[in-house]
Design a protein around this nucleic acid. Structure first.
Lengths: 328, 328
DNA sequence: AGCAAAATTGTTAGCGATAACACTATCCGC
DNA sequence: GCGGATAGTGTTATCGCTAACAATTTTGCT
């Protein structure tokens, strides 16, 4: 920096001012400094700046390192969304979302003096760690605990599940079975609630809940049971991969989709349109969730207080070929 | 830090020594300092340390922010692998792998004084940006350009493709068609090479190459053509999602798998076992790639020189139900 | 012209850590 | 019991930057 200052014939402080877009610098000086910076290929030292200001221009994201479609899409969407904001994102991946791991990840981010934290926290344990957090650090949870007073952005699981269930009901099915995700996920819980609600609203019988764990394998297992029961004509699954497993199980037992059984998934993974048959499903708007989360966080950073804002983003029903009226 | 020093009745330098595990500190003093640290809940300031040492204990990873299974799995595996090493990883996600974006991501990491960079660089453009990099920064490319003298760890695409092709040939097929990934990916190129080589070695005819872009949609499109040609009895696809699309196309035209057409994929996505029929595929060992990459990088960091080590990890054939001898 | 206010630039003092060196005990062998 | 090595500890300078204030120039107005 001193070199730049010397070359531009100004003080280092003026260089600093140019770097930070300070208003009171003559245009001519600014240009001279810029030129010097370019000529010397100078790059400011992040660490020094953070040291003196106590703030970094980075947002810390905590997410489980998995290959689950939902969380991954969220993460990716959030990174995209951040682009224009001038903030960088630092992802603290965590092996599992248990309380201790999350607490560690939070510490790591705090060490780095992040400006704010967003955590993709679809299970209870991930949210618990957040209680110990100083209240003055901006924070948003994505798909987090609706029962906690922490800013939260989430896709409207309940609405999505209701749409899916209603769609099947409206196709003429007497009732709809549901294969849920893991019980400790809020996503699962929300989808179960929406499903049950739609059934109740329609005065339909509520069949026993079948549960799975997001994987096609677990869906297959559930499907093997469902396929044996002649009364099952409509199934709503907690995600598309479960649906895939069910499709397989059904096909193995000669139950045709949609002729014998109708199926609706959740997530709209890119492959869903190429399942056999193409899967009717619920598409959450990950980009909208990401954009909202960012804006909620940015507002906190600006205003310096946490609040407990909530946003929920309604998903959309994508109709394909896996649903038909029941036979007879 | 001063507070800790005061509480422990030592100088700040001694605190620093304890923090860094310096040998010449009396056990008793060390304990006292540790106690003071715990009592005050003191956390060292990362930025200050980086500023003075010029080094951070973080590894910068550059990866495209997408939801493609391969790159995502790599990333996730690498994060896992890093766990025990004492390094943190900072992921610089990049919208696209064009030269400029990658260069920017590299700069960002350099700003942060990362100890080394690993880049998941499956396309040419991502590698180009690396030429401008100072040679003294430790670097590893994953799935990078084999034609560049940069340390490289990659799954052995060619071997995998050869295994797949041979497996189909050995099942009795006269020849094997291939639906490739995008032409600018090294992964695609390697798989095409392996396929062609296996064919040539067996003296089989080499059918025209069909290309796709990793998605099920593109696989479906390719499949619509393939399904029309009676002579096509065996297809090896560049990944499982393409295979899924092909399965759909085949099933739509009444061509049964594996009775009429055999299909082999690549990646072994978790869902592959639940396709209809379960997909025979090639499983790359992402964990091995990650572990190797890390060790190559760590060696560079220790020794302070780049070298141009290469590792390739052989994938494994997973046999399921999508392959059978040709009819008749 | 003359003076206050505003705009621009320079100077100095840290931010919180480590490195390098200086210093004090302690220990060893003769 | 004395020189010299060897712990163990403290002192000082410094990393590259920004904040706060001081100094200077420019501007605007009478």
């Amino acid at each position: 920096m001193t070199d730049v200052a010397r070359l531009a014939g100004v003080s280092h402080q003026t260089v600093s001012r140019v770097l930070n877009g300070h208003p009171n610098v003559r245009e001519q000086t600014r240009l001279r400094v810029r030129a010097a910076i370019a000529e010397l290929g100078y790059r400011p030292n992040r660490a020094a700046r953070i040291l003196v200001t106590g703030k970094s221009q980075v947002i810390g994201v905590i997410a489980q390192s998995s290959t689950l479609y939902g969380p991954m899409s969220m993460l990716s969407a959030f990174e995209q969304a951040t682009g224009a904001s001038g903030f960088a994102v630092s992802v603290g991946s965590v092996r599992s979302l248990d309380r201790r791991s999350v607490a560690e990840a939070v510490e790591r981010h705090l060490d780095q003096r992040v400006a704010g934290i967003v955590i993709i926290a679809p299970v209870v344990s991930a949210n618990e760690a957040l209680d110990d957090l100083p209240v003055d650090i901006p924070l948003v949870t994505i798909d987090g605990d609706p029962g906690r007073s922490i800013p939260l952005v989430t896709v409207d699981q309940e609405a999505g599940a209701r749409d899916a269930t209603r769609f099947l009901l409206e196709a003429g099915h007497r009732t709809v079975w549901h294969v849920s995700g893991p019980a400790d996920w809020f996503d699962s819980a929300g989808r179960v609630r929406g499903w049950r609600r739609a059934l109740e609203e329609a005065g339909a019988e509520v069949p026993p809940l079948v549960s799975a764990d997001w994987t096609a394998a677990s869906g297959y297992q559930a499907g093997q049971m469902l396929a044996r029961m002649a009364e099952v004509t409509a199934v709503f699954t907690a995600n598309d991969h479960i649906a895939l497993g069910i499709l397989r199980a059904l096909s193995e037992r000669g139950r045709r989709v949609p002729d014998d059984v109708s199926v609706v998934g959740f997530d709209d993974v890119p492959e869903a349109a190429y399942f056999i048959p193409p899967l009717t499903t619920i598409r959450p708007d990950f980009n909208a969730v990401a954009t909202e989360s960012l804006s909620v966080l940015l507002r906190q950073i600006d205003q310096g207080e946490r609040g407990c804002e909530r946003r929920t983003i309604a998903p959309e029903l994508v109709v394909r070929d896996s649903v038909a009226p029941p036979r007879g």
